[in-house]
Write a protein that binds this DNA or RNA. Structure first.
Lengths: 362, 362
DNA sequence: CTGAAAGCGCTTACAG
DNA sequence: CTGAAAGCGCTTACAG
C-alpha cells in the first residue's frame, strides 16, 4: 500500500551516471577517497551534493557484512525508569554519538528463576543484523546472560545492579565502588567526631550490602563498634529510612549520626527524626547515597555520596566497543569511584556518649 | 579484521537445503504461511527450529524496500534527561514494543535561531533506511522541523515543550492540557474557600503561560481578581519558587494560597514560606504541577496536578504509526488531560480577607 | 502450491 | 586509478 519505502530515493547509480563513472568509483570516493584520483573524487562529491545522495544503510550493511553500528541499551526489571538509569542512558548515548554508534532503547522483565530460554527478550535482540551488542542495565540476574549467550550477542553489564551468587564473575562489567562509597560516608562522620554511627539500608540487596561493608570497615579501623544494619526496602526506600530511623529512636538506641545508604531513604530518616523532635544536623547528622534530586530537595540538603552515573553509561559503551572490535587488551571489570558531597545534613559532634543518649531519647 | 559479521550465521539457503525446498518456499512459509502446503510448512518450521535460523533483517529490509520498523526518540536541548522525559521515553518504548517497533534514542542540541541546515542532527537521522520517523521530545523550536522536513522524515512532536510563535500549527503533535490543569489547580483552591490565590511561574515560557491562563480563567469565573504572575526560571525552578514566594510575603501581598506551576518550584515556595514563619497548609495552601518525585518528597506532600507522562510517549508512537502507515483518518493534535492529586499541602480556608492579611504579614 | 530468476543498493576482490 | 561483475541474504512477481 502506501508504504513509504526507500526505493524512490537517489541511489548510487544515479550518482555514477551524473558523475560519469562507475558505481564502484562512487563507492570508493565515499569510503576510501585516497584510492581515487583527485579530479574524479571532486566530480563525485559534486554529484553527491547536487543530488543529495545519502547511502542506503541497509544495502551497505548487507554488502559489507560487518557490524551494524547499533547497540542496545536494555533496561531490565524496572517498573519505571528512574533518574538514575536515565542518566546512565544519557551517558551511554552521548558517548555512542561521539563514536558514531546508535543506541537502541529497550525494556525487558523476567523472573530471576526463569530458564534462559523462557526469558521474553525484546524481539530486536533476536533479529539478526540489527544490533551488535547490548548494555545490560537495570536489575539483572545470571539467567539473562545465558539467554544472551544463546543469541551470540556480546554484552556488557552494569555490575552494580547485578544480582548473583558471589561466584559469578563477569569480566565485561562496569561497577560503582559501593564499598568505598560506604567507607567515605562513614569516614566523613567519624572525622566530624561522631562515634555512634548507625547504618540504615537493606543488606539483602547487594549494593546496600557493599555499602554496609565499607561502613563497617571504617568503623572497625577507627576502633569503634560496628552495629548491625537495619532497614527493609520492601515497602519502598522512603519508608525504609523512615521506619528504620524511627525504630532506632523508639528503641532507645544511642546514635549521633546515621548513614542511610540511599538518598530517598535518607529523606525518610530525616523525616522520622523530625517527627521525634530531633533536628538535623543539630542533634543527628545524616549522610545519604547517590546524590539524587532528593538530596538537594531535602531539608536540610543532604550530605551524600555522589555516584558517577553518566560515566557508568559511557564506560559501558567504551567496553562494548572494545569487545566488538576485539581490540588489544583483555576486558576487565571497570570500577568507578564515588565522591563525597558535603552539604548541610552533617556537622561536628563533640558531645560524649552519655549526652548523646539523653538527646536521642529526647 | 576480527570483525564480527553476520555472514557465518545460518541463512535461508541452509534452511532450504535442509527442508528440501527452495528459498522462496522457506520465505513464504515464514512470511505468508497460508500460501504453502501444510506438510511443507511443517518441514520448513522443523528445519528452522533445528538450525536455529533467524532471518537477516538487513537483507529482508533491502529486499522488501519497506519501513525499517525503527523510530527515533529524539531528546532536544536537555543537559540531562529528567525523570519527566524518562517517563515519556518509557511510555513510548512500551507502546513500541507492543507494536513491534524499535525505538532508537538520540540527543541533540541546537540554537532556536540556527538555520535548519546548520542544525547538527544525530547522524542516524540522515542515514537512509535506518529510521522511519521521529518523536521530537525535549524543548524544541520550529527550525528543527524544517531540518527534518529536509530529510524527508515524518515526525510527531511533543507539543507541550514546543516553543514557537502562536501561528505555528503542527498537526502531528501530542500535548498536555496545561490550561485545564491550571484551571483545576485554581478551582481546587477556590473550592476550599480561598479567595486570595496567587500564581507563581515563569510566563515567558509557554507551558507556564498556559497554566496561568487556566488559573486566570478560574479566578475570573469565580468573580475574583486575578493577580499578575510572578517568578523567573532563570536561576532554576527551586529558586523561582523560593524567591517569588518570599518576595510576595516580604512585599506584604495578601494571599492564603499559592499555585506554583511546577513541583520543584512549589517545594521552593514551601521552603520560603517556612523561612518566614508560616506553615503549609495551616497558614498557606500550596498546589504544584506535574506530580514529580519532588511532590512526594515535599513536607508536607504536595497537592499537585498530575500529567499523563507515559501516555504522552505512547500517544506519540500511535500517532507516528498512523503517519507511517498513511492510515485512514487525518492526523490531529492529541491533547491529554491532567488530573488533580490532593495531598497534604492544601486545606480549607475560612478566614476572611482581613485575617488573611494579618497572617501573611506574620 | 512451488521453483527459477530477478532485484533490493551497496561493496570489493579481480582484472586491467 | 577505474570498471565489470559477483555477491551480501532475502522477497516476490512470474511461470508453471
Amino acid at each position: 500500500m502506501a508504504e513509504r519505502g526507500t526505493a524512490r530515493f537517489v541511489t548510487i547509480e544515479d550518482v555514477a551516471r551524473d558523475a560519469n563513472c562507475s558505481t564502484a568509483t562512487v563507492s570508493r570516493a565515499l569510503n576510501s577517497p585516497w584510492k581515487v584520483n583527485a579530479a574524479t573524487r571532486k566530480r563525485v562529491q559534486a554529484s553527491v551534493a547536487r543530488l543529495g545522495y545519502r547511502p542506503n544503510v541497509r544495502a551497505r550493511l548487507l554488502a559489507r557484512g560487518t557490524r551494524s553500528g547499533s547497540i542496545c541499551f536494555l533496561l531490565s526489571n524496572r517498573q519505571f525508569m528512574h533518574a538514575f538509569h536515565a542518566r546512565i542512558l544519557q551517558g551511554a548515548s552521548d558517548r555512542a554519538e561521539a563514536m558514531r554508534l546508535q543506541v537502541l532503547f529497550a525494556c525487558c522483565n523476567y523472573s530471576p528463576v526463569a530458564p534462559p530460554a523462557k526469558i521474553d527478550l525484546p524481539h530486536i535482540l533476536s533479529a539478526r543484523g540489527v544490533i551488535d551488542g547490548v548494555i545490560v542495565a537495570g536489575t539483572n540476574y545470571p539467567n539473562i546472560l545465558h539467554a544472551l549467550d544463546g543469541l551470540g550477542l556480546p554484552y556488557v553489564i552494569f555490575g552494580t545492579n547485578f544480582i548473583a551468587g558471589d561466584e559469578t564473575y563477569v569480566s565485561a562489567s562496569v561497577h560503582i565502588d559501593d564499598e568505598d562509597g560506604g567507607y567515605q560516608a562513614a569516614s566523613h562522620l567519624l572525622e566530624q567526631g561522631h562515634k555512634k554511627v548507625r547504618f540504615i539500608g537493606d543488606v539483602s540487596v547487594p549494593w546496600y550490602r557493599r555499602r554496609y561493608l565499607g561502613y563497617a570497615r571504617a568503623m572497625t579501623e577507627a576502633g569503634l563498634p560496628c552495629d548491625p544494619p537495619t532497614g527493609s526496602a520492601y515497602r519502598g526506600e522512603m519508608e525504609m529510612g523512615f521506619s528504620a530511623a524511627a525504630d532506632l529512636f523508639d528503641r532507645g538506641v544511642e546514635f549521633t549520626a546515621l548513614f542511610v545508604a540511599g538518598d530517598v531513604g535518607a529523606v525518610g530518616a530525616v523525616r522520622a527524626l523530625k517527627s521525634r523532635g530531633l533536628s538535623v544536623p543539630e542533634d543527628i547528622s545524616v549522610v545519604g547515597f547517590n546524590d539524587e534530586e532528593a538530596a538537594r530537595l531535602c531539608e536540610p540538603p543532604l550530605t551524600t555520596v555522589a555516584t558517577p552515573t553518566e560515566v557508568v553509561g559511557s564506560e559501558c559503551v567504551n567496553m562494548l566497543h572494545s569487545l566488538l572490535t576485539g581490540s588489544e587488551e583483555k576486558i576487565e571489570p571497570v570500577v568507578l569511584r564515588t565522591e563525597l558531597v558535603v552539604r548541610e545534613s552533617t556537622r561536628k559532634e563533640s558531645r560524649n556518649g552519655r549526652e548523646a543518649v539523653s538527646i536521642t531519647r529526647g
